[in-house]
Design a protein around this nucleic acid. Structure first.
Lengths: 236, 236
DNA sequence: CGCCCAGTTGAGGACACTCAATAGCGGTGG
DNA sequence: CCACCGCTATTGAGTGTCCTCAACTGGGCG
């Protein structure tokens, strides 16, 4: 399923100044004057759930800021199995590898409907010359992604299925900081923590029976965070 | 075991020009003139096997270039178990997180005797102002580490013990590109791929019985790379 | 010589995987 | 409107792999 659903709408760069995610986004540190030096269009992209933004190995010249929605980054094993190596959420950047001359390193697929900004790499390079601070921000982003990757590795590949799922649910809940969490497909959940869909399904069903999870709405679950934390730490 | 074995020898920065790993190291892109602007000492550090270079959570101001030896980066699970998230080899940089104001993110422990250069963070910042290219190199390094982390995740957390160990052995062999590979302790091997020491031991013993591995010298093994590759891909 | 540590091997059991059948939900077309 | 289809989630039974606990081996070193 290719990115047929990508809508492209040319935008004045000036709009970035008032972007909903400007503070958390790449341009947070820029001054008003800097925006005048953006000479190539930054495009608005809408990506519907299940569609692909880019594929592993493609050479592109765009990087993306995620304004809304959730995107998964996929890698593949020799045997064809796939593994989700990261989730991206509001404010995150995708495709930074373009800046250092590499092709995209993953398949990027929307888990929900998404809104993004597509930024041509040359724009970043131009801005970087006037505002070296942009490079520091970029380095900080890379470092953050690296730290996340390390945590992902330690948390989601060790311990029992029950522990891993508890950790995953906690991590999916935190961003909103309340107790609601959207449940993705069992297959996706499995691909994040290295378990089969059946095991994920069984474990989640059991958590529900024990009252740790409660149905809220269609795809949302309420959860007992304290209990999840105990399970995650192997105390239960 | 703290870094009691660290020997520090003040060096003239000028020596970096003739460093054994200069081409592959951080300063590869610098010109002769740039070296005159290094005003703080870059120190030579020797770290013996099993000793700690820095610990998770410490605030330091040094980053390090690894000239020789191998270093493991460790993270911990809530239950106290540890996981090796990355291996560093000749030419790699440790502690880059210092540059973006973070404390060290891992325990860094030598797997073999190591030689390093300790570079104060301010030196990088000074050089970066005259040579923006340094920032690009740093970004490329971060990206490379991130790609490695993703591969590590996909290769070493999926499939049977046999497959994972084959993949690990291949990855440990490749750097030297011949067929010799140093075998670390079983416990370390297990911490890299999420298996117990017993399972690692059993699997390696079996590979030896099948002739895929042969004893060479004390800690070195010869291996049948073609066979390992078949096993790694799940064909055997 | 005997201790200590790392690696090896064994037996038993728990856990997650595989294969397979069933249930629930939404959409489509008669 | 309802029957049918396809897809996902759930559940079950049986098996295999890996973990746990424990004993044994062999080399290095005091």
């Amino acid at each position: 399923m290719r990115a047929v659903a990508v809508l492209e709408i040319g935008l004045e760069a000036a709009k970035c100044r008032h972007c909903a995610v400007r503070d958390s986004a790449l341009f947070a540190g820029l001054h008003e004057a800097d925006f005048r030096h953006i000479h190539r269009p930054i495009q608005d992209v809408a990506l519907t759930a299940q569609h692909t933004l880019y594929r592993l190995g493609e050479r592109g010249e765009m990087l993306f800021t995620l304004r809304s929605g959730i995107i998964k980054l996929l890698q593949y094993l020799p045997d064809g199995n796939q593994r989700i190596v990261r989730l991206l959420k509001r404010g995150d950047i995708l495709g930074m590898e373009i800046l250092v001359g590499q092709p995209y390193q993953h398949d990027a697929i929307a888990l929900s409907d998404c809104g993004l900004c597509a930024i041509p790499a040359p724009v970043i390079e131009q801005l970087g010359e006037r505002q070296p601070r942009l490079y520091r921000d970029l380095m900080a982003r890379w470092q953050q992604k690296l730290a996340e990757a390390d945590t992902w590795l330690t948390e989601f590949t060790t311990g029992t299925a029950r522990e891993r799922i508890a950790r995953l649910l906690l991590r999916l809940t935190c961003p909103d900081s309340d107790q609601a969490l959207p449940l993705f497909g069992r297959e996706d959940l499995g691909a994040m923590i290295g378990l089969t869909t059946e095991t994920v399904s069984r474990t989640i069903a059991e958590l529900r029976r024990q009252g740790v999870l409660r149905d809220c709405s269609a795809n949302t679950q309420g959860c007992d965070q304290a209990m999840l934390r105990r399970i995650a730490d192997g105390e239960e």
